[in-house]
């Protein structure tokens, strides 16, 4: 394992420490809890607060989306492990401007439990909490069991839309509805070409044989639906687009936002190679790309691979997506 490490047990704390130093104009650590990162613009009196959280190792997610008109406070977990209920509760308190807090997070067992417990904790202090659970990862369950699907990079669009809606002064239920609409409009897929290693474990916990790829891989290396020979970038891009768009079933003429994220160890130029083909494919389907995001937006340690997210837009979502924001990652 060739990694920049001190003591692996301190990795998350050191990550957060460096992050808030580098982005001190936008974020700070909560004085109440070292595992909560808070926007310098939060809380805003009378505005709905936006909170998320999740395991570390996905940087710039989740902390990178803390900022103005975006996420107000983020609960930080161990590598690939849900934050504690207490951290979620402290993040909710930090984001609370008196109009309630929307917790927008991904569909994982630990996060579901810890957010549920956190909501109970803050209810005692009179803070109203609404939740939206992201489930955009197409390959993690069939369409009939959409509530079992994982949340992946579509979460970024959910935060963007939720944060923008909150900035308009919308009520908690309006913010919740907008974030729900955003994630409902998202479909994602991941393809893995190489595994990742938890520093505290020291060796990869799954294998992707050289010359093969895992289609439908999850953000923590959860196995995909197919393991097959690695093909050309264009063929992989076509496959990813087909998986996403078959599940989406959008009418021709739909405007979309596209996000291609690296999983940590894929060169960024290759992401553009994928995107080139993806936009061509979308155009052939009659889709119009309103906005594209290509880069390392939501990673999985040093996994080799990429995810594709397509969000269908209407005028409301477009306006919220286009609203100005400021955060380290977006």
């Amino acid at each position: 394992m060739q990694r920049f490490l001190n003591n692996p047990d301190n990795l998350v704390d050191e990550t957060v420490a460096g992050f808030v130093k580098a982005h001190r104009d936008l974020v700070h650590i909560s004085p109440e809890n070292p595992r909560v990162v808070v926007s310098n613009f939060a809380p805003r009196a009378g505005r709905v607060g936006i909170v998320t959280g999740g395991g570390s190792g996905h940087e710039p997610a989740f902390i990178g989306y803390t900022g103005r008109n975006l996420v107000d406070a983020v609960a930080v977990g161990e590598i690939f492990s849900s934050p504690t209920a207490k951290s979620f509760a402290d993040a909710i308190k930090a984001a609370d401007g008196g109009a309630g807090v929307a917790v927008l997070y991904g569909n994982y067992a630990g996060d579901n439990m810890n957010v549920k417990m956190a909501a109970r904790m803050v209810a005692k202090e009179g803070i109203e909490v609404a939740t939206v659970v992201a489930n955009d990862d197409v390959c993690s369950a069939p369409p009939s069991e959409r509530d079992r699907r994982r949340g992946v990079a579509g979460e970024i669009f959910m935060w963007k839309i939720g944060g923008a809606k909150a900035a308009t002064g919308a009520t908690l239920s309006e913010v919740q509805a907008a974030a729900q609409k955003a994630i409902d409009a998202c479909r994602s897929v991941g393809v893995g070409l190489g595994p990742c290693t938890l520093p505290a474990v020291g060796h990869p916990n799954f294998q992707i044989e050289p010359g093969t790829m895992e289609v439908g891989i999850g953000h923590h290396g959860e196995p995909g639906t197919r393991v097959e020979s690695l093909r050309t970038a264009n063929e992989v891009a076509d496959d990813m687009l087909k998986i996403v768009m078959d599940d989406h079933a959008l009418p021709a003429g739909t405007e979309v936002a596209v996000l291609v994220s690296g999983l940590g160890a894929t060169p960024v130029n290759e992401l553009y190679v994928l995107y080139d083909r993806i936009e061509t494919g979308l155009a052939a389907m009659g889709m119009k790309v309103h906005k594209a995001f290509v880069g390392n937006y939501f990673t999985s340690l040093e996994m080799v691979g990429a995810t594709l997210t397509v969000m269908a837009l209407d005028d409301d979502l477009k306006a919220l997506l286009d609203m100005d924001c400021a955060s380290p990652a977006l």
Binding site: S82, T84, A109, G110, M113, N114
Partner: peptide, 10 residues
């Protein structure tokens, strides 16, 4: 509950 998190924490 306060320091470990994950699924096993709760």
């Amino acid at each position: 509950m306060g320091e470990i998190g994950g699924s096993m924490g709760p």
